[in-house]
Lab assay of single mutants.
Amino acid sequence: DVEPGKFYKGVVTRIEKYGASINLNEQVRGLLRPRDMISLRLENLNVGDEIIVQAIDVRPEKREIDFKYIP
């Protein structure tokens, strides 16, 4: 289970102007929005990149997770 405040290694699977889709595994994925990137710009991400993200909002009833990137 993903817990708010914990850090996870994820893989960038899609990049859109509203954010990047991050997969932690086949069943768990979430969104990294541009506003939640401290020192990383969306255009510097590539599909397949592995990054460390922090879960900031977990809504299991909607199967949604928001991530934050902290270098």
Rank of each mutant, 00 (worst) to 15 (best):
D1L: 14
D1K: 13
V2N: 02
V2Y: 09
E3F: 11
P4D: 06
P4L: 15
G5C: 13
G5P: 03
G5D: 05
Y8T: 00
Y8A: 00
G10H: 00
V11R: 10
V12Y: 06
V12P: 00
T13L: 04
R14Y: 08
R14E: 07
I15D: 00
E16L: 12
E16H: 15
E16K: 08
K17H: 13
K17F: 13
G19C: 09
G19M: 05
A20I: 13
A20D: 03
S21W: 15
I22D: 01
I22G: 00
L24H: 01
L24S: 01
L24G: 01
N25F: 08
N25M: 07
E26H: 13
V28G: 04
V28R: 04
R29H: 13
G30I: 10
G30D: 04
L31I: 14
R33D: 05
R33S: 12
R33L: 06
R33I: 07
P34Y: 07
P34V: 09
R35L: 07
R35A: 13
R35V: 10
D36N: 14
M37N: 08
M37R: 01
I38A: 10
S39K: 12
S39Q: 14
L40W: 03
L42S: 04
E43W: 09
E43S: 11
E43Y: 07
E43L: 06
E43M: 08
N44K: 06
N44F: 11
L45D: 00
N46K: 15
V47C: 05
V47M: 05
G48S: 02
G48T: 01
D49P: 00
D49C: 06
I51C: 01
I52N: 03
Q54I: 12
A55L: 07
I56V: 10
V58R: 04
R59P: 03
R59W: 07
R59Q: 06
E61N: 11
E61Q: 11
K62G: 09
R63Y: 12
R63G: 15
R63F: 13
I65E: 02
D66P: 01
D66L: 15
F67D: 02
K68S: 11
K68P: 03
K68A: 15
Y69A: 03
Y69M: 06
P71I: 07
P71H: 07
P71T: 08
